[in-house]
């Protein structure tokens, strides 16, 4: 038999890791913890066992504000008509490096 459902929920935290070779924090998953210190410690134990971690961010899932799928066409700038934002738009001489 199970214990009674607790009357509270343990907060869910999203975990972001920047690895040694990485430039950005990547979302790797989530975990439950009572507070941010515990979340950080658990994130270290769960998501950096293979030396992946250099920097860990934990954020309460409820604090994340995300765009909606339905926002679609109007929310996102349609990229088709601004090709100059992409590097491939420009022709540069091969001999010139670091461009």
């Amino acid at each position: 038999m199970t214990d009674m459902m607790p009357l509270y929920e343990v907060p869910l935290y999203e975990v972001f890791i920047r690895s040694k070779r990485g430039l950005d924090h990547r979302h790797v998953g989530s975990l439950h913890a009572e507070d941010s210190e515990q979340a950080l410690e658990y994130a270290r134990d769960v998501y950096t066992r293979r030396g992946e971690g250099v920097s860990i961010w934990v954020v309460k899932s409820s604090d994340i504000v995300a765009s909606q799928e339905g926002d679609g066409a109007s929310f996102y700038d349609p990229q088709d008509d601004k090709p100059y934002r992409h590097a491939t738009f420009y022709k540069v001489p091969d001999e010139v490096s670091n461009l």
Binding site: M5, E9, H32, R49
Partner: peptide, 23 residues
Amino acid sequence: AGHGLYLYSATETLGATRESLVD
């Protein structure tokens, strides 16, 4: 254990709570 955790995490993105899954 870690794999279980990743998968519970993924399931929770659909609004199911960990407690409900364990129950």
